[in-house]
């Protein structure tokens, strides 16, 4: 880790960390409590598949279902680990 990295880390305020965590948490909660029954299992399966290729955490996959008229849209968000470049 370079000196620049330490500097950059400090730039990220605790409030923005809180906001990011909340985004993930709230999406998970909504899915678990309001979504169709199969969604949590679907989310776990997707997590497993991605983990075959990249090391990601439990919270790095989020699945959301949006209803628009007659169609439902499955939105999948995967956060990959920080690039080390």
């Amino acid at each position: 880790m370079s000196l620049m990295d330490i500097f950059r880390k400090e730039q990220k305020s605790s409030a923005s960390v809180a906001k990011e965590r909340l985004r993930v948490l709230v999406a998970h909660d909504r899915l678990r409590h309001n979504g169709p029954d199969y969604l949590p299992q679907l989310e776990r399966d997707i997590l497993e598949v991605i983990r075959k290729y990249v090391e990601i955490g439990e919270d790095d996959v989020s699945v959301q279902l949006d209803n628009q008229g007659q169609t439902s849209i499955l939105e999948l968000n995967v956060t990959l680990p920080d690039r080390k470049d």
């Binding site: 305020s13 605790s14 409030a15 923005s16 809180a18 906001k19 909340l22 985004r23 709230v26």
Partner: peptide
């Protein structure tokens, strides 16, 4: 505290 980045802002909470 919001100004110092230590607390979620009104906009943050509204958005979520």
């Amino acid at each position: 505290r919001v100004e110092r980045g230590e607390m979620l802002s009104v906009q943050d909470v509204e958005e979520i």
